[in-house]
Design a protein around this nucleic acid. Structure first.
Length: 682
DNA sequence: GTTAGGG
DNA sequence: CCCTAAC
């Protein structure tokens, strides 16, 4: 029998490809955003816009090749720039002449024909929306590990110019990526672009009939569907934003929307994907780091310029949130880092990596939404927003140790895709405060060009509407503000198959959504707000208001429900005992003694589903230990000395009792003093 | 299913 | 917190 082990990968987040990367120079007028601060654009729209960018970036084609002759490549999924600290990257594969990464393969496996997208590709005519994102992909030519970092620029469709920043002298591929159109990615010649451009640009307008249009379009969306299916459709809670169900009506404005329209297509793709993602035979790994580092040297250098690879490696390791002993199997080269502070190639990302300020610089571009880029000012005051990069909420992945590295990659990709695809949404922060009113205009909100938008930030947060279960902690900072604990996202591809309650999601910070607190046995995190009527505050029981647990914002994304159970259940998350819990435990033990953990559980933690009697026993064990060591050696949330004293006292008492019991059957009668002591407890 | 103890 | 032996 194969020993199944699990690996936990704690990602403190990726850096999702940077969104618009504003070009400072007005000339580049790259930041034409729809909407104006004057009231036409509401915060909601802004969010939607941002989300769109993200999604397109997520599902859009990625190109990882410079080989312009390979048509196929052009439709690869746009690579995301992962957190520099994450060792898992989206990268081009070394397969064949095309450097298509697995992502693209996964997503676009259906694009056998060159012009699948024919007739679907946007016509970058004068009427095209002013959103054009150019992706500058840099990657180390040193093949196989050709890591790459992408940058996404938003600009006008016609601004062909691209930043010529060259990183570390690596070869560079410049890709134009048109938003609100297809996920077309141009990697090379213009004629290719033209040859595949869509004929009916109208489709991309609000009310186009998706079905009525080219197959190319359909295929495209279909491919996206595959991604969804493979990554999160099964959990039926994540989808690409709010569009999936809107069907045709929403048209291609949001490419994803048409997905269902093409459901009928080749199931083989689905199957393939499933198969791929399901396979979890871990084979290799253990090899270090230096080797792989050297391969990715270019990247590492650019990402960790100030560190030696060793250092980074070490740091990675030390920060990896891998609660397993399996840790030893972990490998830096394939690992992920929890380190904070995304360090993108530009070294500009926020140190927290959570919220990135946007940068609004001056004037806008044409107000006419028609994409006419009269390079300059218009009557409307437009707001330019620049987002260096986003960071995906922390992601947790568990995968069988027997899984292959390849499947790990895919799993991670799926997780990311799932998250980006709808598990998250964009939040707007203004001066550290979350802007909740989606209906306010930017101007009303204070997001105006003449306002220093340094204070404007965007954050990725769980998308409540897409998540079935939500452990909602009122006002808990899911929003990833600087320094706030990042929400934890747990992605378990296979485990927890049959646990309905196992898919809980990040709390929805807003009161606006289904703030239903679900106390699934899975893990009902003690209510932080001490709602006196909360279950976990066992009224008559010993356990009183359990203070907020530190962590507990987690997302569990059950996947592959069909997978074998052999994959083993995932390790429970660590839930440090709060002082209140300790108090309750001590009290119960004083009364019941050690050795009756089940009773202790029933008495004091009956409502704390996540505390088993074994947990209580273990906690007691550690408490005793803690009480015996010097305060300096203690870690974690300090337990009041008073409690520790009681622990020792009770422990001593019950130990004595036990000893006596064993010696003879002479109950407590022989020790009046102890008895007295106990009375004082009771 | 519980307990106890090592990991 | 996990795993197991032992009951």
């Amino acid at each position: 029998m194969v020993l199944q082990k699990r690996l936990d990968y704690g990602f403190h987040g990726y850096q999702v490809p940077t969104m618009p990367r504003a070009t400072r120079s007005v000339r580049k007028r790259s930041l034409c955003r729809k909407g104006t601060e004057g009231g036409q654009m509401r915060a909601f729209d802004l969010l939607a816009t941002v989300a769109d960018k993200l999604l397109h970036g997520t599902d859009g084609p990625t190109t990882t090749t410079t080989d312009t002759s390979t048509e196929k490549d052009r439709y690869a999924v746009m690579n995301k720039e992962l957190d520099a600290n994450s060792l898992l990257k989206v990268e081009p594969s070394d397969r064949g002449s095309c450097d298509q990464g697995f992502v693209s393969e996964l997503v676009l496996s259906g694009h056998e024909k060159k012009c699948d997208l024919n007739g679907c590709l946007p016509q970058h005519d004068e009427d095209s929306p002013p959103q054009l994102v150019s992706v500058v992909t840099n990657f180390d030519k040193s093949k196989e590990m050709g890591n790459l970092a992408s940058e996404v620029h938003v600009g006008s469709p016609r601004s062909k110019e691209s930043d010529n920043c060259e990183l570390d002298g690596k070869s560079k591929v410049i890709v134009k990526y048109e938003l609100h159109k297809t996920e077309e990615v141009l990697t090379g010649t213009q004629d290719q672009y033209d040859s595949c451009k869509r004929e009916d640009p109208v489709i991309w307008d609000q009310k186009a009939h998706v079905l009525g249009n080219s197959n190319g379009c359909g295929k495209m969306t279909q491919d996206k569907q595959i991604i969804q299916n493979s990554s999160f459709a099964t959990q039926n809670n994540v989808k690409l934003v709010d569009r999936d169900d809107d069907e045709i009506s929403s048209g291609c404005t949001h490419p994803v929307s048409s997905i269902k329209s093409f459901r009928t297509v080749p199931s083989s793709r689905d199957r393939r994907i499933k198969k791929v993602s399901a396979s979890k035979s871990w084979k290799v790994v253990p090899r270090c780091r230096d080797e792989s580092l050297s391969k990715t040297d270019g990247i590492w250098k650019s990402m960790f310029r100030s560190k030696s690879s060793h250092d980074s490696c070490r740091r990675q390791k030390s920060q990896m949130n891998i609660p397993f002993k399996k840790r030893k199997f972990f490998d830096c080269s394939s690992s992920v880092s929890n380190s904070d502070g995304g360090i993108n190639s530009e070294g500009l990302s926020d140190s927290t990596g959570k919220v990135f300020n946007s940068d609004i610089s001056g004037r806008s571009c044409s107000a006419s939404g028609n994409g006419h880029h009269k390079s300059f000012p218009s009557k409307d005051s437009h707001v330019k927003i620049r987002i260096k990069s986003f960071r995906v909420p922390e992601l947790f992945i568990e995968i069988s140790e027997t899984a292959t590295v390849g499947s790990l990659k895919r799993t991670v990709m799926e997780a990311v895709t799932a998250v980006l695809g709808g598990g998250i949404r964009v939040g707007v922060l203004l001066q550290g405060k979350k802007v909740r009113d989606d209906n306010k205009t930017l101007f009303q909100t204070g997001i105006s060009h003449d306002n220093q938008l340094d204070s404007l930030g965007f954050a990725l947060e769980p998308n409540p509407s897409r998540t079935p279960l939500a452990l909602c902690q009122e006002d808990s900072p899911c929003i990833l503000p600087c320094d706030a604990p990042e929400p934890l996202t747990r992605y378990s591809p296979d485990a927890s198959a049959d646990h309905p309650g196992s898919s809980s999601v990040l709390p929805e910070p807003h009161g606006d959504s289904l703030g239903h607190f679900i106390q699934s046995d899975h893990d009902s995190a003690p209510s932080p707000t001490n709602t006196s009527n909360h279950k976990s505050t066992t009224d008559s029981k010993a356990l009183v208001n359990v203070p907020a647990m530190t962590v507990e914002a987690l997302t569990v994304v059950p996947m592959h429900r069909k997978s074998k159970r052999s994959e083993v259940a995932q390790r429970r998350i660590r839930r440090p005992f709060s002082v209140a819990e300790v108090e309750a435990l001590v009290q119960a033990v004083e009364k019941l003694g050690t050795g009756r953990w089940r009773d202790v559980k029933l008495r004091a933690f009956d409502n704390a589903k996540h505390r088993t009697y074994v947990d209580l026993k273990d906690k007691w064990k550690t408490l005793v230990h803690t009480a015996r060591i010097s305060p300096q050696q203690r870690r974690g949330e300090p337990v009041p000395q008073e409690l520790l004293d009681r622990v020792l006292s009770a422990h001593a008492y019950w130990s004595k009792q036990q000893a006596k019991y064993q010696l003879k059957r002479q109950p407590e009668t022989t020790t009046p003093m102890n008895k007295k002591t106990q009375q004082s407890w009771g």
